[in-house]
Amino acid sequence: MKIDLAVSAEGPDQRQAAARAERGGYDGLWTSEVRHDPYLALGLAATATERITLGTCIAVAFARNPMTTAVVADDLQALSGGRLVLGLGSQIKAHITRRFSMPWSHPAARMREYVLALRAIWGARQSGERLDFQGDFYQHTLLTPMFTPAPHGHPAPPVLLAGVGTAMTKVAGEVADGFLCHAFTTERYLREVTLPALTAARGGSLDGFEMVGAPFLVTGSTEEELTASATAVRRQIAFYASTPAYRGVLELHGWGALQDELRPLSKAGAWERMGELITDEILDAFAIVGEPTQAGGELTRRYGDVLTRASLLTLTATVASTTAEIADAARKEATA
């Protein structure tokens, strides 16, 4: 299991953060689409690093059409020397239609077609052959020489899909090169729901299939740091738990009624109160809890035989400073 670092796309110079991650021995660096554009951050990271994998976890697929995504990903693949991993997610309907003003329908089927369209576009750009992709959601049939770049000598980037429900998970198994486990998952859900769905979609084997996870981390070197970290993670878990699309994770554990409590609170913006409803039992199921060395060892024990890559996700600045300790402890546990 490779150990990666997830970074915020915020800050004046992403190059410094990327260079520190590479010097720190991380295998990869992941950016997400929250407050800023993940592709711009990776472009800066590519100019400051030489070795580490650079990935999006996630970029919102349906905020763009396949052509725009294919072009920016191809440019990043060239800029990074072939180190890009394109991680895509669907987001939920409200964000796609109201924040991005883009169409929403049949997300699993649309995502399947999206990936196929990406591959058709990359293939045409690399081969010079006529682009003729005609699907139910996307049609790309025009790519003239003026808009086709010179070959950069690297293959198309691998595409990883994020998912929680079985429909999107099945699509990932069918057409993607790997799967991005949502932070709102548990070890039990991963083993009992996600892995069987992926394995079935891939004909019984996950050989060569990338499995990337970014479990919540509740950690710190003092009681105050642990408390602050736990508070932040409880609120984030509560936010996700209020989303109807993620109810299946709660139902597996018998916590479905929790969503009924959280939904009205989320509509009222009662974020602090929502976090207070996340019990220690729920926190322990979703997050790895403990001091840095304990958290690193637990990360490997829980997921070392399942994930090919683990991305250390932190929600507080204090916790972020401890990721190196967590990574070292995870590596030691893996070789013990």
Rank of each mutant, 00 (worst) to 15 (best):
R20K: 14
L131V: 08
L315N: 04
D284A: 15
G248L: 01
H36G: 05
E281K: 12
H152C: 09
A17H: 04
Y246N: 03
W271C: 02
R302S: 08
A241P: 01
Y138H: 13
G81S: 01
E223P: 03
A73F: 08
G163H: 00
T199E: 14
R119L: 09
Q134K: 13
V115K: 01
M1L: 12
R35S: 12
L265M: 15
L195P: 04
I3H: 00
G220E: 01
L40T: 15
V193L: 02
W255L: 07
L190I: 13
A285L: 09
F209W: 07
K2A: 12
D305T: 15
Q77Y: 09
T227V: 13
E298Q: 15
I326D: 00
E113P: 05
A268S: 07
E50W: 06
E33M: 05
G55F: 03
A330Y: 09
A120E: 12
R98E: 13
G290E: 06
S266G: 08
G254K: 07
H152Q: 10
I278S: 03
S105F: 04
G304N: 08
A270S: 12
G81K: 02
G220H: 01
E272P: 06
S229V: 10
I282D: 05
R99Y: 13
A9I: 09
G296I: 12
C181I: 15
I121R: 03
R23D: 12
S32C: 07
A120S: 14
A73P: 02
T199I: 10
A336Q: 11
P145H: 10
S221H: 14
R35Q: 12
M146N: 05
A295G: 06
Y303N: 04
T293G: 00
L116C: 07
A63V: 04
S242T: 05
G256M: 07
T166A: 04
P244H: 06
D4T: 09
R51A: 03
T199D: 06
L5F: 07
R202C: 05
L118R: 03
R98A: 12
P38Q: 04
P38M: 06
Y138N: 02
Q16R: 14
E10I: 14
A162D: 02
A329P: 06
P196V: 12
G43K: 01
P149W: 10
G128A: 09
L265V: 12
L88F: 00
G11V: 07
L5H: 04
D74P: 02
T185Y: 03
L5I: 15
L312T: 11
D260G: 12
